[in-house]
Structure formats: structure tokens, C-alpha cells
Design a protein around this nucleic acid. Structure first.
Lengths: 235, 235
DNA sequence: CGTATACTGGACTGTCAAGTCCAGTAATCT
DNA sequence: AGATTACTGGACTTGACAGTCCAGTATACG
């Protein structure tokens, strides 16, 4: 998974400097957007200079590519604990709560670190491909969990884990976008609750339930009013 | 609903020129983003000059505000026929098909004209407020339709039209975002199908059904494989 | 018809950002 | 140790862009 392509031969110090640049750039891009982030600001924030930046990256576009990959890593790392337990309704709920918590903790600012780059970068092919790959990686954890559920006969055999996962991703991304717009976690909560209810709607009526796990009604409903361990402040 | 505030007194020619500028700016902003759209490009596209632009707008930010409002108008106008018939599952399906059709027709480029501005503009208060208002207006048509359905006893009394509408909006926005990323209408289709199924899940079991309307199973399921009158090309 | 004001044209300025260059220092390898 | 190559510093060039200015034309209105 090399980033740039033909980097001569990186020294220990070299990789450190490069990493510092990408890290600073990722921070700035997240809070200001790509176009609004000047290279000088990246240099200042990372304590490096022009020549160093251009030693490791062909140009700004090249740096942006590295930033996309870094942001993907960050997003996945943030959810690491929950991401591997998406093989049950309860696990999905924990994931939901974690995401909502992260948004609230961050003041509902910025939305999705990957999603917020789409509008600005999806016009060009290389960045779009990287964004697509980032979403695909994210989604793959959902696919894995849902597939496990189906294999355990907790989901109907005709339920397609890939389609379900994509649907969940739309609610997630839209929820994050509207959350950033309204500065309220409410849209994210409602979106993800809908998505989880959608998964539940695909459950086998009397599934085997390996461990004792109690769930809500099959048709979802507004059972979970929108906040669980969370204090939801709507806009 | 005045845009700028203290515009002296607009002549017929004045409003025409102003409109031409906003129109051109809206086009360019949609396809290139705010930051990537230079005022010179707007001038060239609208056949106007610097002094005209600064005669009608205080600065670029002010123009961007007008663009947000214009884009909101455009988005709503585009869906005009379907927007007033969101008071039935069939109407929601027609709306869904129209949105998918629009995306496919446009090559799945650009995503939502409003949503794509969020990442770039939600950092400042004035633009964010306008974006929020735009989404709210959009959502209000859903709220109206869903409320009608509930009043007709087609939805359970405890179903909250506002929450349902917000959930639908998340699927819509996320669907558009992922559609722009993958250049496939598939995510939008799956997202909106999930959202409609979510509404269906809130139906009264044996509702009065004013006109003869046949629907799918209450628990949604993958009954509608993702393409109806549409040819879905997944990525 | 005349004057006040809306409107227009285009050259000009200042700033800031991307990318270049070259001279110098620190590693690495034999 | 010495040569080769990775790495670093900062000044410099170039261009684009937002915003200004002023002189001139069309339009409203008495």
C-alpha cells in the first residue's frame, strides 16, 4: 500500500518527517477543507519547510492523496473497538452510540473526515478512487458482521449483507452531514436507528439466538426515542 | 426573504443582471465547489464585469449566500411534481424514482447541490444557517406528507412525522454523497428504499386505505431489489 | 428636458499561495 | 574515512485571485 509511488529510499528520520507533514495536513484539511488549507499552514503546523514537503510529495495533490489515506486510517482506528463486533444487533447499537458520542464530543463539527472530502475531491479520478476505497473498507466491517449474522441464521437467507451494509452507510453519511449542518447529533441518531431497524427487519422470525440476547420489536418503531446513553440536544 | 439586505432600489435591468450573476455562479459552484470558483469565471460565464458584481454583492461571501438560496430553489423546483405527493407510499416511491432518475441523467456527478456545500461552508454561521434552512424546507414536504398519512390513520399515532422525515433525509443525503463517490445510483436506491421501508414499518397493521393501494410486506425486506423503472448499474 | 442616481467597463493594486532553486547538513554504505 | 545520497533551510519566482477605483452610460423621475 505505497502512497506516492517512486520514493527513493526512506530513512528513519525521513519517514518521521513525512508522517509529521501528513498528520498536520490531515488536521488542517479536516477543519478547513482542502482548498482552504495552504501549504504554508501545513509547514508551520508540522515544523517543516517547503523543500521538505516537496521532497516527499510531488505537489499538493499528491499530499492530499496521502491525507485521504491517513483520514481513512484515523476513522477506522477511532471505531476500532466497535468495528469488529458488528455481528449482532447489540453490537450495532454499541457502534451507533460510539459514533454519536464521538460527534457530540467533537461539537458536531466537521462531519465525516472522509465524507467531507467528497464534494471537494470527487471531481477528479485519483482522489475519488481513494475515497471510494475508504468507504469500501469501512463498509466491509458491516458486511462481515452482517454475513456472520446471516450464517448464524439470525438474518433471513435472502438478506444481502452487501446491500444492507450500503444502506447503513447512507444513513451514517447522511446523518453525519446533517449533524454537521444542524450542530445536533439528532439526525445521526435517527439515521442510524433507522438503519439498525432496517437490519432488524431482516431477522428470521424465530432465530436460533446463540447467546441470550433480548431485542426490541421486529418492526422497529420509535421504541428507542433517539438517545440511549446519550443526552441529545436537538437544534 | 431578502438576500443581501440594503440593496438601494433595483431596476428591471438591475434584477436581470443580478440574476444572471447568481445563475452563473450557482452553475460553477455546483460543478467546481466554492473555493475553486473564481469571480472572474463567474463574470465570464455571466457576461458581466467586476464592478457589476460588486454593485450587487458586498463580497464573494455575500454572493455565496445568494447561491445557496438559489440552489435551494433549484433543488425544490426539480422535484416540484413529486414533492406535493409524498402523502402515500406510492408517492414516496415516485419521488425516489425521480431522484434516482435525476442522478443518473446527470451522470451521478456532483451529488446534492445543497449537501455538497456543507463541508465547505458549514464552518461559518451565516452560510450554515442558510443550508440548514434549505434542508428544513425540503424536509417540510416530507413532514407534510407523513403527517397527512398519519391523520388518515395510515401511520401509527405514535409515529413522529418529523423524526421520520429527518431519517429519510439522512438516507437521501448519504445516498447522494455515496452516489457521487461511486458514480453509481445504487447507494441512493438502497438508501431511499430503506427509508421508505422505514416509513412502511410505521403503518397501522390494518389501516383504512382510502383508495385501493397495494403494498409490499410490512417488514420491508428486499422485495424491491433496488431498481424499479431503473436500470441500476452498480460500481 | 435635465439632473440625480442606478448601472456599467476595465484597468489597477495588494496579497497570498503554489511551486522552484540552490546551497548546505546529516545519514548511509563500502 | 570518504564518497554518495538522503535530507533540510529559506529565499525567490510566478500567477491567480479578491477587492478597489474612477470615468462613463443608461435610466427613473420631476
Amino acid at each position: 500500500m505505497k502512497t506516492t509511488g517512486t520514493v527513493p529510499r526512506l530513512t528513519a528520520r525521513g519517514v518521521a518527517t513525512r508522517a509529521r507533514i501528513v498528520e498536520a495536513a490531515a488536521d488542517l484539511v479536516f477543519e478547513r477543507g482542502v482548498a482552504e488549507t495552504g501549504l504554508d499552514a501545513v509547514l508551520a503546523a508540522s515544523g517543516t519547510s517547503k523543500s521538505q514537503l516537496y521532497h516527499y510529495f510531488a505537489d499538493k495533490d499528491d499530499l492530499v492523496l496521502a491525507v485521504i489515506e491517513r483520514q481513512t486510517e484515523r476513522v477506522l482506528a477511532e471505531q476500532e473497538p466497535q468495528l469488529h463486533e458488528l455481528d449482532s444487533i447489540a453490537g450495532l447499537h454499541r457502534w451507533r452510540d460510539a459514533l454519536v458520542g464521538l460527534q457530540r464530543h467533537g461539537g458536531c463539527v466537521g462531519g465525516c473526515p472522509i465524507g467531507s472530502l467528497v464534494a471537494e475531491l470527487a471531481g477528479s479520478d485519483r482522489p475519488r478512487e481513494l475515497l471510494r476505497a475508504g468507504f469500501a473498507r469501512w463498509e466491509s466491517f458491516l458486511v462481515a458482521g452482517l454475513t456472520t449474522m446471516r450464517d448464524r441464521d439470525e438474518l433471513r437467507p435472502d438478506a444481502d449483507p452487501r446491500d444492507l451494509a450500503t444502506a447503513v452507510m447512507t444513513a451514517l453519511q447522511g446523518g453525519l452531514l446533517l449533524t454537521a449542518t444542524t450542530r445536533s447529533t439528532r439526525p445521526l441518531e435517527l439515521g442510524l436507528d433507522m438503519a439498525i431497524a432496517h437490519v432488524e427487519a431482516h431477522r428470521l422470525s424465530r432465530s436460533v439466538q446463540p447467546r441470550g440476547r433480548r431485542e426490541g420489536p421486529v418492526d422497529a418503531g420509535p421504541a428507542r426515542p433517539a438517545g440511549t446513553s446519550t443526552a441529545s440536544r436537538s437544534g
